[in-house]
């Protein structure tokens, strides 16, 4: 009896969900057709007609809108994964410093976290770009000719050059997300019981060895979920690229919409792309989590 009741409820919910989605989708289609714009993606194959300063793969203005958007996606991936790695290092480093009581370093670290967390990311990005890079104007910074060069045109490092738009976005996102990751790391480390610290000290391990061999592995299960959500935020925040002139998928989408008038289709594509990207990040992090839990058990 009780079971049957549950089945009824589930069935009812299913019908409700289907009905609501049907109404919404119908609504969307009705609105599209009233504007004379039936849902249509054929425009994606027409030539884009605009140039891009940065493209990881070959691109010319005669290529299609679809290709232009894909190039934007690659530009997004490039900056997201670059910042993800830098932010993780910054976060680990600062988070650890905050837990080990070095007075001066700890003070600097907490100052960094406070400043970064109390100001809007958009302003920080603009600061890195307009003040940091473009503020160099005609000055440039050179380190023995081909190792490192920094100017208002960007960074050249060992013969590879990055534009100032990319560099400031990478820097801004890494420094910003790093501050949040540091707090996640600190929280994770503090969650490990005090007894563990005393235990490894009594075994005669140095504090750095103890930290990396004993404490951090135990802190990881507490760190991973927080880290995942910071990575997801990072991916979403990357769409602020447009504020510093970097051609990520969002910025290119903006141009595409003004040229084609296809805002609904473009936004659907954009949303699906980010949904897909974030599901990828979530699942990847979950796999890591499972691996760690499994490893801990054995």
């Amino acid at each position: 009896m009780n079971k049957l009741y549950k089945v009824y409820i589930q069935f009812f919910l299913l019908v409700l969900v289907i009905a609501v989605s049907a109404i919404l989708i119908n609504n969307l289609l009705a609105n599209l057709s009233r504007t004379g714009l039936f849902f249509n993606l054929s425009w994606l194959l027409r030539p884009a007609g605009f140039a891009l300063a940065e493209h990881p793969l070959a691109y010319s203005p005669s290529d299609t809108y679809a290709w232009a958007l894909f190039i934007g996606f690659l530009n997004s991936l490039k900056v997201i994964f670059g910042s993800l790695i830098f932010a993780t290092f910054i976060g680990l480093f600062v988070g650890i410093i905050r837990t080990v009581n070095h007075s001066l370093l700890g003070f600097i670290a907490s100052g960094y976290i406070t400043i970064i967390r109390q100001t809007p990311l958009l302003l920080q990005l603009m600061f890195w770009y307009f003040v940091g890079f473009l503020g160099l104007k005609d000055n440039s910074f050179q380190l023995s000719n081909d190792i490192l060069g920094i100017s208002n045109q960007g960074i050249a490092f060992l013969g590879v050059s990055f534009t100032s738009e990319f560099s400031s976005l990478l820097l801004g996102l890494s420094v910003f997300t790093g501050a949040y990751i540091a707090e996640v790391v600190r929280g994770g480390i503090l969650s490990v019981s005090k007894g563990q610290w005393e235990a490894f000290r009594s075994l005669g391990l140095s504090s750095s060895a103890g930290l990396f061999k004993i404490i951090i592995p135990q802190a990881l299960p507490a760190i991973i979920p927080g880290l995942t959500s910071q990575y997801l935020n990072l991916a979403k925040n990357s769409t602020l690229a447009i504020a510093v002139g970097y051609s990520d998928i969002y910025a290119i989408n903006d141009t595409v919409i003004t040229q084609t008038g296809r805002s609904i289709e473009s936004f659907i594509l954009l949303l699906i792309t980010f949904l897909f990207l974030n599901l990828l990040i979530t699942n990847f992090m979950e796999a890591i989590n499972r691996f760690i839990l499994y490893y801990k058990k054995t």
Partner: peptide
Amino acid sequence: RIIFGMLGLSMLLASCANTS
């Protein structure tokens, strides 16, 4: 997750299209 994501997405789209 995919189902919920898609559902949320369609709601969002339908509601923004509704202003015409």
